[in-house]
Amino acid sequence: MKILLHTPHAEDAPEWIAALERALPAAHVRRWSPGDTAEADYAVLWRPPAELFVRRDNLRAMFVLGAGVDALLALERRAPGTLPSGVPLVRLEDAGMAEQMAEYAIYAALRYMRRFDEYELAQRENAGAAPWRPLEPHARDAFHIGVMGLGMLGAHVAKRLADLGLSVRGYSRSKKTIEGVTTFAGASALPTFLDGLKLVVNLLPSTPDTEGILNRDLFARLAQGAYLVNLARGTHLVEAHLIEALDTGRLAAATLDVFAQEPLPAAHPFWRMPRVTITPHISALTLREPAVRQIARKIEALARGETIGGIVDLDRGY
């Protein structure tokens, strides 16, 4: 069995190769390099170049080292036929990411509900000079949270927030049922879902239909002084509209883990906005060992002729 590996950082490759060969003792794993068109049975990929797919029609499956496959689908949109026809594209299903994402969302929700962000700002700006003044926290029963996207990650995040006794709504393309969460489905239900939300957590898949969905029209439907947490993709957010909403007070603050350009350029205004909290795309990191175990199980299942989960519908984009 021959496995082709692509990771953007060369220093990561030896550990991925070793982990895959431990999990699949019959496998020979090599890191792809430019000009490599040698035979492979499977590809394990993260943000590969289009060149990697030259002469790859004999692949049995392609595994993505993440839950999102937007980078690969963008290659196909720019140059149809880049991805080998008929080869299953398989995303990771959790592999330790869902709980990381829930921890991030819970932290952001409690930070804003209890107004810890305002205490942090006061400390930075006043350094003890301001009066010692407690702030009235947002009323729990009025702090309505909306989770946009109820796939594997979003459903887990919504459930974990609801388990804390918070008021949680969920929005998805198709109808979902989650204990403790009021769910909405389809574009026609989006306005009702958004109405009066105090905090929005975005976990939508990145598709042409969701690009720019976090915009001034969406912000206008939220409660005055609402909060935004974007954990999905930077392309979901119209950055200029967020800056406008923060400047006018339509939104009170935002926590952003993803950006249209990553790393975020040093000159970007978000760095200088005290009501914007930035993290470097770390809300749910791929954990090597759980990811490798999942990929190995799926390769073994495919070899037995079994059906596996996580196969991407290329038309839907997830």
Results as ranks from 00 to 15, higher is better:
218 L>V: 11
194 L>N: 08
300 E>R: 13
121 L>G: 03
225 G>L: 11
260 A>M: 11
298 K>D: 15
123 Q>D: 12
45 L>F: 03
233 R>G: 06
202 N>E: 08
287 L>Y: 00
210 T>P: 05
151 G>W: 01
63 F>M: 11
50 A>D: 13
193 F>P: 02
269 P>G: 11
234 G>P: 06
70 D>P: 03
243 I>N: 00
38 A>K: 04
10 A>E: 15
162 A>N: 04
142 A>W: 01
55 R>S: 15
18 A>K: 14
86 G>N: 11
105 A>M: 12
65 L>D: 04
281 H>Q: 08
122 A>N: 14
285 L>V: 14
245 A>S: 13
104 Y>T: 13
114 R>K: 14
305 G>W: 04
160 R>H: 02
151 G>M: 05
17 I>T: 15
272 R>E: 15
176 K>Y: 01
95 A>E: 03
257 D>F: 06
66 G>T: 10
225 G>W: 05
272 R>H: 14
257 D>Y: 05
10 A>W: 00
227 Y>D: 05
196 G>P: 01
71 A>M: 04
53 F>Q: 08
18 A>E: 15
238 V>P: 00
62 M>D: 09
180 G>I: 09
70 D>S: 14
218 L>A: 10
186 G>C: 11
213 I>N: 01
162 A>L: 05
109 A>C: 12
124 R>P: 00
170 G>R: 01
232 A>M: 04
36 D>R: 03
197 L>K: 03
199 L>T: 06
210 T>V: 11
315 D>K: 13
140 R>L: 14
5 L>Q: 10
60 R>H: 13
231 L>T: 04
220 A>Q: 06
239 E>A: 13
236 H>K: 09
63 F>W: 09
82 T>V: 15
136 E>H: 05
266 A>Q: 14
41 D>Y: 02
50 A>P: 02
12 D>I: 01
146 G>P: 05
158 A>G: 04
39 E>F: 09
204 L>A: 15
289 E>M: 09
241 H>R: 00
166 L>T: 02
102 A>L: 06
138 H>E: 12
172 S>R: 02
195 D>H: 08
9 H>S: 07
136 E>D: 09
177 T>E: 15
171 Y>Q: 02
289 E>L: 13
314 L>R: 15
208 P>F: 05
222 L>V: 01
230 N>D: 10
88 P>C: 06
23 A>P: 10
27 A>C: 06
89 L>Q: 11
244 E>Y: 01
222 L>Q: 11
153 L>H: 02
133 R>V: 14
23 A>D: 12
273 M>I: 13
20 L>H: 06
233 R>D: 09
54 V>Y: 05
43 A>Y: 08
17 I>W: 00
56 R>I: 06
280 P>F: 07
83 L>F: 04
295 I>K: 10
274 P>T: 09
42 Y>W: 13
249 G>S: 08
141 D>F: 01
139 A>N: 01
290 P>L: 08
279 T>V: 07
299 I>R: 02
181 V>T: 05
189 A>H: 08
235 T>C: 04
205 P>C: 12
10 A>Y: 00
208 P>V: 09
43 A>T: 11
33 S>I: 14
59 L>G: 01
292 V>F: 06
154 G>T: 07
87 V>I: 12
272 R>T: 13
23 A>H: 09
3 I>M: 00
111 R>E: 14
308 I>E: 11
194 L>Q: 06
249 G>L: 09
172 S>Y: 00
8 P>Y: 05
50 A>T: 06
120 E>R: 01
274 P>S: 13
